[in-house]
Amino acid sequence: MARIAGRAWKFGDDVDTDVIIPARYLYTHDPGVLAAHCLEVADPRFPAGVRPGDVVVAGRNFGCGSSREHAPRALQACGVAAVVAASFARIFFRNAVNLGLLLVESPEAVERVQPGEYIEIDGEKGLLRLSSGETIPVRFPEGAAAEVQQAGGLVEYVRSRLAARAVPAPGAGAEGTIQGE
């Protein structure tokens, strides 16, 4: 898993998907439009100020509300590299994993990170490093969710699984076997 380093944008509890991207922009999933309005309701400086690699840090139940996949797409369109939260709402969690957005769950990290602070996330070691150099152990999606995330999302994951199926197993198609049985 890649290392991520960027500035933290801090938000509170219950940031819902309408706050991440209001319904009035759902006429499109054009990344430019989504990025221009992402999180503007919670922090009007965010869309213009966010830089690729930055990290969103929020409290409990991040991504609650409507199931729109536009919410994680909007964060990705802004260049957000990861979301660190005390907890994630269920469908947002799925949608983010499916779209390949890195999620980190850690109530402690959320408490310690200061707005604007430069932080690092080390996926290999399972750590979040504060600007003071201090480290906090954090949790990443595990098991099947991690596989999907590492493949770059669910579309890519399924693509490669289907491609693997299409490749004949070693030995198949050898002399004397019948094709297409």
């Binding site: 596989e147 579309v155 994951y157 399924v158």
Partner: peptide, 18 residues
């Protein structure tokens, strides 16, 4: 689930679950 999830389930007959 979301639409991308359903796409995966329709394609593979499998899906990931927490």
């Amino acid at each position: 689930v979301g639409s991308t999830d359903l796409a995966c389930a329709m394609a593979l007959g499998e899906l990931w679950f927490r």
